[in-house]
Design a binder for these strands. Structure first.
Lengths: 220, 220
DNA sequence: GCCGGTCCGTCAGCCGGCTGACAGGTTTTG
DNA sequence: CAAAACCTGTCAGCCGGCTGACGGACCGGC
């Protein structure tokens, strides 16, 4: 199992890292949230061990943002003994489990195994947005329970929005996503594809931000 | 003090209502969230006592929605003894305090007094949205800490958005808000006023929903 | 009473967005 | 292999939105 450890305390971090390796998992250890974000963007992890107090921000806010962006990687948060409200807040933000420092490393092993068992069968659950149920792995989408076929370009455009919920994506960014590097369309092809997505999935699937770009519609 | 009691248990509800009256407060008692919403829309309460399990929904979701809409009325949530996570969730959703059932009615009196004292000096605190700090009572707004003067019409338009955060308001709704009953402007006056608001408060203060209307910009 | 300033409704030109239709290329089917 | 179907880029007409400018009404100061 590939684990990302986000912990700024060097003594605890080294001990956890060594234990995880001794348990025959692979582990990357970072001490800041920005590095954690980079790692999660560029590699697939099976689990994240996430401290809550990091030098460059709050673990809970980071976790919430990851969940908001659609990440379903299991997360165990590491809390201090008396941070009960942090613990609840962490679970509410999308953590799958928590461990209270200081903890026995054998308990860590047990927890890692438990999370691996729980999630091994379902790494990419459905994403639900309004009337849409989206399966990014199967590249399928249901609208009000009915499957809707999207063409290759339509799917690529839709996937760009679903993977960046809340973000406004400019036409240029979308062009870079849909076309090969350097290819330049010289028309309003993006607008036309947005129109086609709307026709298939409902008008609210994509919101226009005039003069800036588009973003995924939300359920409000 | 005017109190809205939202409690579906008739025995507890009657006891609390009677006690509040004996304490020389006025109280309205409802048993469902939809009635609570109606009451909060049409009358000004100093406090809400809110149960969490109601027949037509979750008190916490209701509270969150009230806070999202800008309501700052103090709320005490009523939780069952073992619902610790509900308690934390309720506080996170914007509750000011909580009481655990069963509770002594004299403790209720003490809590009501405490909340009244805490809020009596500041019934309408600043609302912060992005770079804006808004005081609806003083009819003033700061943009990045600097006061911005709005004319009467501009303020009325802005207030409409601030009091309906998240909602799309159509031009017709905004016209009804700004002009006397039956008065009909025959131009794009609303658009022009939106443009003027943007000029004073920043372009993101109002989002356009093409063909439908406008809504308050949020900080994203 | 007059003048200057402010507010606000109106207008019009410009702009960005939307989408139907078309055509060329590709893929699928018979 | 040919025809049909599909995909996708392009185009253009239409539409809604934006905003600068203007002028009338109102208000405050002199």
């Amino acid at each position: 199992m590939r684990i990302l450890l986000v912990e700024d305390d060097t003594i605890l971090g080294a001990a956890v890292r060594d234990h995880i390796i001794a348990d025959n998992h692979s582990v990357d250890w970072v001490t800041r949230l920005d590095a954690a974000g980079d790692h999660l963007d560029s590699a697939a992890y099976d689990l994240v061990l996430l401290d809550l107090m990091l030098p460059d921000g709050q673990g809970i806010a980071f976790l919430r943002e990851q969940r908001r962006r659609g990440s379903v990687t299991p997360v165990i948060i590491l809390t201090a003994l008396d941070q009960i409200s942090d613990r609840i807040a962490g679970l509410n933000a999308g953590a799958d489990d928590y461990m209270t420092k200081p903890f026995d490393l054998s308990e860590l092993s047990a927890r890692l195994s438990a999370v691996a068992r729980r999630y091994s069968g379902n790494p990419n659950p459905l994403i639900t947005i309004g009337d849409l149920q989206i399966d990014l792995a199967a590249r399928s989408v249901l609208c009000n329970g009915r499957p809707v076929d999207l063409t290759g370009r339509e799917w690529a455009l839709f996937e760009a929005f679903v993977q960046h919920p809340g973000q406004v994506l400019s036409k240029t960014q979308l062009e870079e996503r849909l076309y090969a590097f350097g290819a330049e369309v010289e028309s309003n092809a993006i607008e036309v594809h947005v129109s086609r997505l709307r026709k298939k999935l409902g008008h609210a699937v994509v919101e226009t931000v005039r003069g800036i770009g588009y973003r995924l519609g939300d359920a409000r």
